[in-house]
């Protein structure tokens, strides 16, 4: 019995280890290659560790671009989008789940529509609109559209699904205690919604952090660029990419988020499971 259990465990480990390869190798390659000289990066067969360990690419990242500034831009935009989305999506999600008002279904269809819009589809009208109010080459389009436009619809959808799954009894009790709608939302529903808020927060942060098309279209001065856009700017005199520097910059953008995930994942996943994110 014990033997068969441990044999099963061994098989599971082996399976997971094999499955890891496609997930791990590209990231591994990206990080290790940033420490290789250019000539070694595309050497065949690829080397698992740099034969010649060099770190000057990391210094060059900061020399060639206002990279610290761009890092700050990405960070503050992502934080602003995440904070705003958490507030507005939880409000809207709560109302769609709990308050019965005329037209709710129709308005929820609008949310579902938002869920379906690829950003390529509306980029030109959005650009025209932001140009009209003088907001091109500012960070406003990158904050407002993800926070309230099509990308936020998914977050409202998740919040609605979550609040729908909460037992009614809690709220009924609060209502008998004389709490108003906002107080119920604020003091009862939101604390229970921590796991869903965690999911929404992570989705939103990653969405904003990785946004690529919009910054390219809306921003034009390097000190306003965001990180994914900055990655494409490390090019040599003929427009060819400077691989080691690009990869160093890409590693710098990925590693902190990864570290935060490692630290926070226990709370995140177990939090999600705590009351269960209902579909």
């Amino acid at each position: 019995m014990i033997k068969s259990r441990s044999r099963l465990a061994l098989a599971l480990y082996a399976l997971m280890a094999v499955l890891c390869i496609p997930f791990l190798f590209p990231t591994w390659w990206m990080i290790t290659s940033s420490f290789k000289p250019v000539s070694e990066i595309f050497a065949f067969p690829p080397t698992l560790l740099p034969r010649q360990f060099v770190t000057d690419a990391y210094g060059r990242v900061f020399e060639l671009q206002p990279f610290a500034r761009q890092y700050f831009n990405s960070l503050y935009i992502a934080v602003a989008v995440t904070t705003g989305t958490l507030a507005f999506s939880s409000l809207a999600g709560y109302a769609f789940a709990r308050i019965r008002f005329p037209g709710a279904n129709l308005l929820f269809m609008l949310v579902l529509t938002g869920l379906l819009i690829p950003s390529e589809v509306t980029i030109v009208p959005l650009f025209q609109m932001f140009l009209d109010v003088g907001a091109v080459n500012t960070h406003w389009p990158l904050i407002l559209v993800p926070m309230l436009g099509a990308p936020s619809a998914l977050q409202t959808f998740i919040m609605r699904q979550f609040f729908s799954g909460l037992p009614h009894e809690l709220e009924d009790a609060a209502r008998i205690d004389g709490l108003g709608r906002f107080a119920i939302y604020h003091r009862i529903a939101l604390p229970l919604a921590k796991p869903a808020l965690a999911a929404v927060g992570i989705f939103t942060f990653l969405y904003s952090w990785n946004l690529y098309l919009e910054p390219i279209v809306f921003l034009s001065s390097p000190d306003k660029f965001t990180l994914p856009q900055a990655l494409t700017q490390f090019v040599d005199a003929y427009g060819g990419p400077m691989w080691n520097i690009q990869l160093a910059a890409a590693s710098l953008t990925a590693i902190p988020v990864l570290v935060v995930f490692v630290i926070a994942q226990k709370q995140f996943i177990e939090g999600l499971a705590y009351t269960g994110l209902k579909g």
Binding site: F23, L206, N210, Y212, L231, L247, A250, A254
Partner: peptide, 8 residues
């Protein structure tokens, strides 16, 4: 992979 830049 979720946090790795799409381009890379």
């Amino acid at each position: 992979p979720v946090v790795v830049s799409l381009v890379a």
